[in-house]
Design a protein around this nucleic acid. Structure first.
Lengths: 203, 203
DNA sequence: CAAATTTTTCAACTCTTGGTGAATTAATAA
DNA sequence: TTATTAATTCACCAAGAGTTGAAAAATTTG
């Protein structure tokens, strides 16, 4: 009965306004990259999920690579703000504050955003450079410096290792009960570890 | 001058014996999967590296998937043996023993094997199930049970989080100085964390 | 030796990939 | 209104993917 041209949403030409294709693509890309990784995710699958033609990826982002950078590689935090927030306050509760802040941020996306970042790092070398820059130099290194302890860089990497690992187990592999334990429980368990890495005796 | 049939090493038919194609493929697969990830690694590239025809992958492993399982997903340790080794000895140095053992094992492949596993987990859901089974239930859970502490499963996941994180930073993102610090230094820094997760107060 | 089997290469097939350019339609400017 | 610009879809391409089946050569078996 219906010709292919009659079907709603398949007409050619510019859309009747209000349709934010760019954002739709970014959200779809996040989801698909999370589920499939960089290589596994296809431009076609992303476009389909966004309800848009695959050619739009090229039009708006210059290609798959560009879309990747504009979706997954965008952190949900402002590094400088993060560093400042956790720096101010009692130095003895620094570890607890960081763990709480870390989990609050990543929990808000159900862990998907964290998964995506790990996938990026695993399948895409360029992401590693970005992470090092942001996490280490802009955040942990800055915090470690404020404590005045020696071996600031080593301490920063130790902190990163525990936080990244906690994220892996909670968001990626989802080992129970760590994956669903409430934040307070996690703070009590992991906070002291971070605290020691920053201000304690590490050998 | 030379016809294609004259060139050495390109004749058809069975090879002059002694050529262990299967193993050559497994080793090549490990290398390429490590460097490229599952999707990024091509059967052709693996075969070329092994000096063998791509069709051999199908012949010996039934396809790319099979080769993946027989190469990367093989852990370089025997879980039961590992659990026993670290269980025996002074319970107060349990943490140190685990860190030392963990690093010794994965350092031996230059970290590549660990990277590959992470890549698998990130791009291949089936690997997660395998990891949970092996790491948690067969190793850490068993050890945690021996200590007689409460919350054995929570403790096991905490241990896993710190070890996985250490592996991520040392082998995957390679943040310095943690990436190249010698094992003794790492044991001194991280050992106490593991020890506390197993036998200490975690909230 | 002859027959059967195993191992290997080769060529080709099909499917999917990311990307391109023209055509089409809506929105906007003159 | 008319002309211009922006947004979207479509059909198609070249490259590369994993896989397949037949042919060829070495080995093993009878």
């Amino acid at each position: 009965m219906t010709t292919s041209a009659e079907q709603e949403g398949k007409r050619r030409g510019r859309r009747p306004a209000g349709a934010d294709t760019k954002n739709a693509l970014i959200e779809a890309a996040r989801a698909v990259f999370i589920e499939q990784g960089y290589e596994g995710a296809t431009v076609r699958a992303i476009a389909k999920r966004a309800g848009v033609d695959p050619a739009m990826v090229n039009h708006w982002f210059g290609g798959k690579e560009g879309l990747f950078g504009q979706s997954v590689l965008q952190l949900p935090i402002d590094p400088t703000m993060f560093a400042n927030e956790i720096s101010e306050g009692d130095i003895d509760t620094l570890g607890e504050r960081i763990v709480r802040r870390f989990l609050t941020i990543w929990d808000s996306s159900g862990g998907g955003q964290f998964s995506a970042l790990v996938r990026s790092v695993a399948s895409h070398d360029m992401a590693v450079q970005g992470l090092r820059e942001i996490f280490l130099k802009q955040i942990f290194m800055r915090v470690a410096a404020k404590t005045g302890a020696d071996n600031a860089m080593f301490r920063a990497t130790l902190v990163a290792s525990q936080l990244v690992g906690m994220g892996m187990v909670r968001y990626v592999t989802k080992f129970e009960p760590l994956a669903t334990n409430d934040i307070d429980t996690m703070v009590a368990a992991v906070g002291p570890t971070i605290q020691r890495y920053f201000t304690g005796d590490i050998g």
